[in-house]
Design a protein around this nucleic acid. Structure first.
Length: 413
DNA sequence: TCTGGGGTCCTAGGACCC
DNA sequence: TCTGGGGTCCTAGGACCC
């Protein structure tokens, strides 16, 4: 019988902020930015939640609900550090660990009973170890499947442990709202409601063929989920299977919508640099480049192009995203721009000799630039090629006092 | 209420090939 | 000469998650 844990950190970003500033404890805290900024709540403390503030809520709305809350920008590097600490504690409990996101993980503890005791006891030990190792609270769900363990940890919040005995899965799930099933969002919930399905128990009673015919592949998976099985989709994979990313992207929402071609294109250049850098960090090559635009009415537009040869280079990403932009932009003010790289591979694929030597030189130059950015910050270095023509305003983005350095492109470009 | 940024997976149509 | 079927790749959009 499988023993699966799902561990979820409680109010993770807020709790990390409290470690660095204990005066925040007990106060309504909102992580995400200033209340007059465009943006949404990344995390809210339990005190803030009592005022109706929750994650994904626009910051301006959060302010209306709770003007006395402390609004903080957030510190992504701190969260990554603490996520890493959590990961280390988990690895001391099981070799089969998968971080599902920055603040949650799955563990397979099957066969560990002699070492750690029965699931509830093991969960207690883990809970204490996380506290000791990070100073943070978490909630743990234990069950025979990933799905049930995940729903359990949610039910156990905050700072609790819940174990569902083998064989009790369906009875545990039956009274819950269908929305509690991971993957059932607003739209699916509405669709299910429209055919009279509200509880997971209603779902379990239905004919599988009906669900498949009505809701497609997903419907079939739902039938299994209602019984507590890891049926279909992402839950089916073995724990620890997910490794290399399938896409890498960066996007930016302007403080105010803009129709300034120079501003838009220089932002695209910056997004391309950031994507290129992450490709090199991961040792991945991309064949597909995608441009994303979002307009005032939130309508979102994407255009992609697949290259004949994979790339890691900022210049190629820039040229491609700019070309897509110039071909498709109608001149309407833009709210957001983004650049995504996909069709990723750990190898560059076939290149002719000339391209190979050019590629080696470029990679050297870019890796040097990456190191400078590590030292002096993202805006310290900009590609000389990125400064040509419309990208010229990048120069002015360099904050005073930082060593602005141009990296010369290799000859022949 | 006026909506971030980083992802994953699914669907569906068209091109193209055998 | 009235029109098959399957496989794979590419593209666009959308639901969903943290």
């Amino acid at each position: 019988m499988r023993v699966i844990f799902h561990l979820d950190m409680d109010a993770f970003f807020v709790s990390v902020e409290e470690l660095f500033d204990p005066s925040l404890k007990g106060k309504p805290v909102v992580v995400g930015g200033r209340p007059d900024q465009r943006g949404v709540v990344s995390a809210a403390s339990y005190a803030a939640r009592r005022f109706g503030v929750h994650s994904a809520m626009p910051l301006r709305t959060a302010y209306k609900h709770c003007p006395q809350a402390v609004f903080v920008e957030g510190h992504p590097t701190r969260y990554r550090d603490y996520s890493h600490k959590v990961h280390q504690v988990l690895q001391s409990f099981s070799p089969v660990v998968e971080m599902a996101s920055i603040d949650e993980a799955y563990l397979d503890l099957t066969g560990s009973e002699r070492l750690l005791g029965p699931p509830l006891q093991a969960a207690n030990k883990l809970h204490e170890a996380i506290q000791a190792g990070t100073g943070l609270n978490c909630s743990i769900g234990a069950a025979t499947s990933r799905l049930v363990a995940k729903i359990c940890s949610d039910q156990a919040k905050p700072n609790g442990i819940l174990w569902i005995l083998p064989g009790m899965e369906a009875r545990f799930l039956a009274p819950l709202e269908v929305r509690r099933i991971p993957g059932v969002g607003k739209v699916m919930e509405k669709n299910l409601h429209s055919v009279g399905i509200r509880k997971v128990g209603d779902l379990a009673l239905l004919d599988e063929a009906f669900l498949e015919q009505r809701f497609g592949k997903w419907g079939l998976a739902l039938a299994g989920k209602a019984k507590g099985l890891d049926a279909g989709g992402w839950f089916d994979a073995e724990i620890g299977a997910g490794d290399d990313p399938k896409s890498i992207s960066h996007e930016h929402t302007f403080d105010q919508d803009t129709a300034d071609r120079g501003q838009i294109e220089s932002t695209l250049a910056r997004m391309s640099e950031m994507v290129g850098r992450r490709l090199r960090e991961h040792g991945l090559w991309a064949r597909t480049v995608q441009l994303k635009l979002r307009y005032k009415d939130f309508s979102t537009f994407t255009r992609a192009h697949t290259l004949t040869e994979a790339t890691q280079l900022d210049t190629v990403l820039m040229a491609e995203s700019r070309r897509l932009f110039q071909r498709n932009w109608t001149g309407k003010p833009v709210r957001l721009v983004g650049v995504q790289a996909s069709s990723l591979d750990g190898e560059p694929g076939q290149m002719n000799l000339l391209e190979q030597s050019s590629h080696v030189q470029w990679t050297k130059a870019l890796t040097a630039a990456d190191k400078l950015r590590d030292k002096f910050g993202e805006s310290a270095v900009s590609l000389a090629a990125g400064m040509r023509g419309r990208f010229r305003e990048r120069v002015h983005e360099n904050p005073a006092g930082l060593p602005g350095k141009k990296i010369k492109p290799p000859p022949g470009e």
